[in-house]
Design a binder for these strands. Structure first.
Lengths: 220, 220
DNA sequence: GGCTAAATGTGCACTCAGTGCAAATTTGCA
DNA sequence: TGCAAATTTGCACTGAGTGCACATTTAGCC
């Protein structure tokens, strides 16, 4: 098959190894995707993003350079391919919050859910890469914009009227902005603070700014 | 001179034509910059950003392709080179507000000052370009991030303590986010609303969200 | 006005990310 | 086992971007 875009019709391609019924093709694809991702990230971190070529990556992953594009749309996507996944995760996490939670509380708990999977060392390494490469920095900003949209949609789905939609957009914008700033500070300070404490503190600041009542004990 | 970056040590290169004492070199440089910018934008709008090559632009501007890079760091920069200028303009506009204005009022008036130079038709055309090109979209997000930083710094300079710095960052984040969303809506709706009305309405929303008092009559 | 040095423009060859496409290879199914 | 479909590879190419030597233009001094 001759694709202009990597195949994205395989949502089963997760890293959990749930491939009991997968054919050889699918298993090989997942293994190659993993090998490719690891090889690329290792090279990026070792010699820099710009200095690492697609030939370097393909050789290390034992595929042809042409095949790289069956797995990723671009070189940048190796670093940022998870962005759509994080927006999706945001949507899911908010949809799973109880209906009676306020928008801000739902957003807070969704983000707490998402930070459980955070690996500080990886985050620092990737942040360094992004800092060194303007195009990756720009993609980082795109990530937050996508997350904001996802959050706004998810919060709006909990609202009953048009004013709720407007408020959802505003809450999403403020919340996502605060996440972005807090994340930057967290990474700048070596990612030492526990992410959940950071998130709780951040939401306290948001509530103070928005003159919102404090959160009730979150149900998990 | 063999530069890896375009010359940026000429802040006098504005479009106002204040070149009474400029040498021939400088006058030619400005003319070429203008010609190049116009040629590029015309081609982008006529045939699309990706479909327009640097050769196309250089030919239309009557320079060599190699010389393009004396004027712009990249092809993208033709479209987005004014970003640093808009962040600078934000800094200046806020610094010029009276010291007794609140942060939000200062931000509002600064933005009103900046929107005076807005040309709706240009804005729509450029927005269309950015929509068609992911890399330009990403750079658009970078613009807002830069503007936010500039605003935060300028507002912090008006604050007397550390809490003021934190508040400045928050106000900048909320304000810039609101500008971004309002601008997107404005452009989506054909840029028909008067920009100053849009800005005033937007700030009313921000004040409502932040439970801030209404603005006093702005001094201009 | 002439000369020289500095600044700027150009041509050229190159690298690298990204793309189209045909041929080769692998996998799945009857 | 054979064949069709899926996937990989090789190759040639484009266009953005870069280094560098040489050509041209401008500025400044005598």
């Amino acid at each position: 098959m001759n694709t202009a875009k990597p195949l994205k019709s395989k949502p089963k391609s997760n890293a959990a190894g749930s491939t009991a019924t997968a054919g050889l093709r699918e298993r090989k694809r997942e293994q190659t995707l993993q090998r490719l991702t690891e090889a690329a990230m290792k090279l990026f971190l070792a010699k820099g993003y710009e200095a690492t070529t697609l030939d370097d990556i393909a050789t290390a992953a034992e595929i042809s350079r042409r095949s790289f594009f069956h797995y990723f749309a671009s070189k940048e996507d190796v670093v940022v391919a998870w962005q759509d996944r994080s927006a999706d995760a945001m949507t899911t996490a908010i949809a799973e919050r109880p209906a009676e939670e306020s928008m801000i509380t739902a957003a807070e708990n969704a983000i707490l859910t998402m930070t459980r999977h955070l690996n500080p060392e990886d985050a620092i390494a990737i942040a360094r890469l992004k800092k060194e490469t303007p195009a990756l920095q720009a993609r980082e900003q795109v990530k937050y914009e996508k997350m904001e949209r996802a959050m706004a949609e998810a919060l709006a789905a909990r609202a009953s009227d048009k004013a709720g939609r407007t408020r959802a957009r505003l809450v999403a914008m403020i919340t996502t902005g605060a996440i972005r700033i807090a994340s930057e500070n967290w990474l700048t300070q070596g990612a030492r603070e526990k992410p959940d404490l950071l998130v709780r503190r951040m939401f306290a600041d948001i509530r103070a700014a928005l003159d919102e009542p404090p959160t009730r004990k979150a149900k998990t």
